[in-house]
């Protein structure tokens, strides 16, 4: 069980971040939406500030824990590029990703977000499981 504490606390920090942005700025902390608005040149300063903060995440973690978080990417470069393209198109088409739909959408009990989260979890599990079986 103790192995799950950092995951639980980390998740609660994500919820706190999303809650602050919602109650103070009135905005949904959805990463694909924020990046999409940034790319479209909408509210560049406020969306840019969020992304700058996001980029500081691993550095803050290293400052608090003495080392960067573990990160292992096993997929080959072509697969990584293909995955990036699909994630970019899919999150914009589906109006959200793990943060906007997964965290705030579920907390708001939004019907669209529940359907979206079920869809990307299902597709993610199917893809990762199939890839695992084939490799």
């Amino acid at each position: 069980m103790s192995a799950y504490w950092p995951s639980l606390f980390g998740g609660m920090v994500l919820g706190l971040s999303a809650g602050l942005l919602l109650l103070l700025n009135g905005r949904i902390a959805g990463i694909s939406g924020i990046v999409g608005r940034l790319l479209g040149g909408h509210q560049a300063l406020v969306n840019g500030a969020f992304v700058v903060g996001l980029l500081a995440g691993p550095t803050l973690y290293a400052a608090a824990h003495g080392a960067l978080p573990a990160m292992t990417v096993s997929a080959s470069w072509p697969v990584v590029i293909l995955a990036g393209l699909i994630v970019g198109i899919g999150t914009r088409m589906g109006s959200g990703c793990t943060s906007g739909h997964g965290i705030l959408g579920l907390a708001r009990l939004s019907k669209r977000s529940i359907v979206a989260t079920a869809s990307f979890l299902l597709a993610g599990v199917a893809t990762a499981t199939l890839t695992g079986l084939l490799s």
Partner: peptide, 20 residues
């Protein structure tokens, strides 16, 4: 909504990365 989310899930499952 459904198609985009399914696409996103496929990409997520391929490399293990989501946007954030």
């Amino acid at each position: 909504l459904v198609g985009g989310s399914l696409l996103f899930g496929i990409g997520w499952g391929l490399a293990g990365f989501c946007p954030g």
